[in-house]
Design a protein around this nucleic acid. Structure first.
Length: 553
DNA sequence: CGCTTGACCTAG
DNA sequence: TGAGCTAGGTCAAGCG
C-alpha cells in the first residue's frame, strides 16, 4: 500500500521483549496486568464508545503503540532505512545504508569501557577505507607516523591521512545516543523515560552492530582485519587495565588492601578493593577509572559503573549482587546475570525460588531464612501443593523436526501435539510450553513432556521428583554451596523430612490461561481457526458461525 | 558412569 | 533469498 506503513506489534514484541510466551493472553497479562478474554478488533469500538475508564484503557494501549513507533522512527532516521525494514530485516541493512550515505556525504571517493568496540574503531580509525594492504605502506611512501599496527598485525592509516567512514558513522550513532541520554536525565514522566531508555539502548546496539557487520562472513562486506583487530585491542586493554589497577592500588602505595581483579568480561573489570564501605569503594572506583582512562587513546574511556555488595560470583557470565550506583546508602536493585532467575528455559518455580533465596541471603542477610524457605517449597512441591503454572517450562522450536539431531522434550511434544490437532500445535519459531509428567521409571525426559492444558484436562499426574532432582537441586546447590559448604548444603536442602512428604492434591486452571491459544471450530466446514479471524479461511462463513474452544486439544 | 555433542539461552 | 559478532554455562541425549 503506497504511503502506508504496516507495523505489526507482534513483531515488535518478538524483537524487543524476551517473554516466556507470546500469546495474546500472555502479552496482555504482562503489559496490562489483566487477561483479556475474547479481545477482538471490534472491542476497540466498544472501548471508544464506552465510558471514561474504557477510553482510558484504550488510550494507554495506544500510547504504548505510539511510543514504540516513535522509537522506530528515530532509528529509521538515524540509520536511513525505511521503517518497515526495522521489523522485516536485520542489522546488516542498517549498516549498509549508513555506509552508502556516509560515502555520499564525505569527500571519500571510493568499570567498563563505554561502548568499547565502537570506541576502539574510532580511536584507531579502523575502516575499509583506512586498511593498508600488506606492503602498501612502503609503496605509498607512508612514514611510521602515518599508520598503526593492530594486535593482529594489520595496519590502518591514521585519521590525519584519511578519516574512515565507520568511525564517522559511529560518531553519529553515539552522539544520537548521548542526546537520548541527556533527554532521559531531564525527563520526569516514567513512561517517556522508558521510551528514551529504549532509544538509547537501540542506538547502542546499532553501534555495536557495526563491529558485527565487519565480522559477518556471510554478509555484504566482511572485513576480518577490522573485526579481529577490534577484539584483539579489547583483550589487550582489559589485560592492561588489570595490570594498572593491581599495580597502583596496593598496601605498599598506602591503600587499605591490595586490589585484586576478580572478574571481567569483554569490556569490564570487577575489582576487589578490600575496603569496608560502599562509599570508599565508589570513591576509589571513580578515581581509578579516570586514572586508567588517561592511559588510553581518545575517545576510549573507562567508566566507574557500580559497586556490588555483597557479590555472589558463581561462574563466568553468572553472578548476583546488590547493585549500588546512584547512592552509597541504598542499593538500586538486586542484579542477577545469567542465573536461573533471568533464563526463560527454567520453570517459574525455579526462577522464583532462586530469586527469593537470593533476596533473603543478599538483602536480608538471612541465610537460615533462605534455607527454611527452600525446604518449605520443596515440601510443597512433593506434596503437590504447587500450582501447575509454576511448573511450565518453555523452549523455542528453533528448527523443523527433521533438522534436530537428537530427541528433546519440547520437540517431541510439538510433534505429538501435531498428531492430536495440527491446527493448534506449536510451529517453527514458537515457544513450546510443557510440564514433565509421571511415567515408567527410567523414561527419558523427552517422553515425559506434556502440554500443560492437556495435563489439566485429563488429570495427569506431574513428576514432582523430576522437578526436585532435575530442576531445583543444582541451581539451589550452586547458590547455597558458597555459604554452607558442599556436603552441608546437600544434606540440609535435599535430604530430611521435608523431602519425604507425599500426598495428592488438585491444581487450578487460572494460572495457565496465559499459555492458552484460543481456537474456534467453523460450523460450516469444521475447520479449526484462530478466534481472531472474522471469516473462515476455508468456507468463508462469518465469525458468528464459529464455536469457540477455550483450549486447543 | 564418564565423556562428548547438540541445543538453548544468556553476557557482553 | 537474506541472515550483526563471539564466549560460555548448563542440561539432556547418546555413546562406549
Amino acid at each position: 500500500m503506497e504511503g502506508r506503513v504496516q507495523f505489526d506489534l507482534l513483531q515488535v514484541l518478538l524483537r524487543d521483549y524476551k517473554l516466556r510466551s507470546y500469546t495474546l493472553n500472555a502479552v496482555s497479562f504482562h503489559f496490562l496486568q489483566e487477561q483479556k478474554e475474547d479481545v477482538q478488533h471490534s472491542i476497540i469500538t466498544d472501548l471508544q464508545n464506552g465510558n471514561e475508564q474504557t477510553r482510558r484503557r484504550l488510550a494507554v494501549y495506544c500510547l504504548k503503540d505510539l511510543m514504540c513507533v516513535i522509537n522506530y522512527m528515530e532509528m529509521a532516521r538515524v540509520t536511513g532505512v525505511p521503517l518497515t525494514y526495522l521489523l522485516s530485516r536485520g542489522q546488516q541493512i542498517k549498516v549498509v545504508s549508513q555506509l552508502l550515505r556516509q560515502v555520499l556525504q564525505s569527500s571519500h571517493c571510493h568499570a567498563g569501557f563505554s561502548s568499547l568496540y565502537p570506541s576502539i574503531m574510532m580511536a584507531h580509525n579502523l575502516c575499509y577505507t583506512t586498511l593498508l594492504q600488506r606492503g602498501s605502506a612502503e609503496k605509498l611512501g607512508l612514514s611510521s607516523e602515518d599508520f598503526i599496527k593492530t594486535p593482529t598485525g594489520d595496519m590502518f592509516v591514521k585519521s590525519s591521512v584519511r578519516k574512515g567512514l565507520l568511525p564517522e558513522i559511529l560518531e553519529n550513532l553515539l552522539s544520537a545516543r548521548k542526546r537520548a541520554k541527556t533527554e532521559l536525565k531531564k525527563e520526569t514522566d516514567p513512561f517517556k523515560k522508558q521510551v528514551l531508555d529504549g532509544r538509547q539502548l537501540a542506538l547502542k546496539i546499532s553501534a555495536n552492530s557495526v563491529y558485527g557487520f565487519t565480522g559477518a562472513q556471510v554478509g555484504k562486506l566482511p572485513c576480518l582485519e577490522i573485526s579481529q583487530s577490534v577484539t584483539g585491542f579489547g583483550r589487550q586493554m582489559i589485560e592492561k587495565t588489570k595490570q594498572l589497577v593491581e599495580s597502583k592500588y596496593t598496601i605498599a602505595n598506602g591503600y587499605e588492601a591490595d586490589a585484586k581483579v576478580i572478574y571481567g568480561d569483554t569490556d569490564s573489570v570487577m575489582v576487589k578493593l578490600g575496603v569496608a564501605t560502599v562509599r570508599e569503594a565508589m570513591d576509589i572506583g571513580r578515581e581509578a577509572a579516570e586514572w586508567v582512562s588517561s592511559h588510553f587513546t581518545q575517545p576510549i574511556k573507562l567508566e566507574f559503573e557500580k559497586v556490588y555488595f555483597p557479590y555472589l560470583l558463581i561462574n563466568k557470565k553468572r553472578y548476583a549482587g546488590l547493585y549500588f550506583s546512584s547512592s552509597a546508602d541504598t542499593h538500586d536493585k538486586m542484579d542477577c546475570k545469567g542465573i536461573e532467575t533471568v533464563r526463560r528455559d527454567n520453570c517459574p518455580l525455579v526462577a522464583n525460588l532462586i530469586n527469593t533465596c537470593l533476596q533473603k541471603i543478599l538483602i536480608d542477610r538471612d541465610p537460615q531464612g533462605a534455607v527454611d524457605h527452600a525446604k518449605e517449597v520443596i515440601s510443597d512441591l512433593l506434596c503437590n501443593r504447587i500450582d501447575i503454572s509454576q511448573l511450565v517450562i518453555t523452549k523455542e522450536l528453533t528448527r523443523t523436526a527433521q533438522e534436530y539431531a537428537g530427541k528433546q522434550a519440547h520437540v517431541e511434544l510439538a510433534e505429538r501435539m501435531r498428531k492430536r490437532d495440527a491446527g493448534s500445535a506449536p510451529n517453527l519459531g514458537d515457544r513450546v510450553p510443557y510440564v514433565i509428567i509421571k511415567a515408567a521409571k527410567g523414561a527419558a525426559a523427552y517422553m515425559k513432556s506434556e502440554d500443560p492444558i492437556y495435563v489439566l484436562e485429563n488429570n495427569i499426574p506431574i513428576d514432582t521428583q523430576y522437578y526436585l532432582d532435575q530442576q531445583l537441586a543444582k541451581p539451589l546447590l550452586r547458590i547455597f554451596e558458597p555459604i554452607l559448604g558442599e556436603t552441608k548444603a546437600e544434606s540440609i536442602l535435599l535430604k530430611g523430612d521435608h523431602t519425604r512428604c507425599k500426598t495428592v492434591l488438585t491444581s487450578k486452571v487460572g494460572g495457565l490461561m496465559a499459555f492458552a491459544q484460543k481456537r474456534s471450530t467453523c460450523i460450516g466446514c469444521k475447520a479449526v481457526l484462530k478466534t481472531d479471524v472474522a471469516v473462515c479461511d476455508f468456507c468463508k462463513k462469518k465469525e458468528s458461525n464459529f464455536t469457540r474452544r477455550r483450549f486447543s486439544t
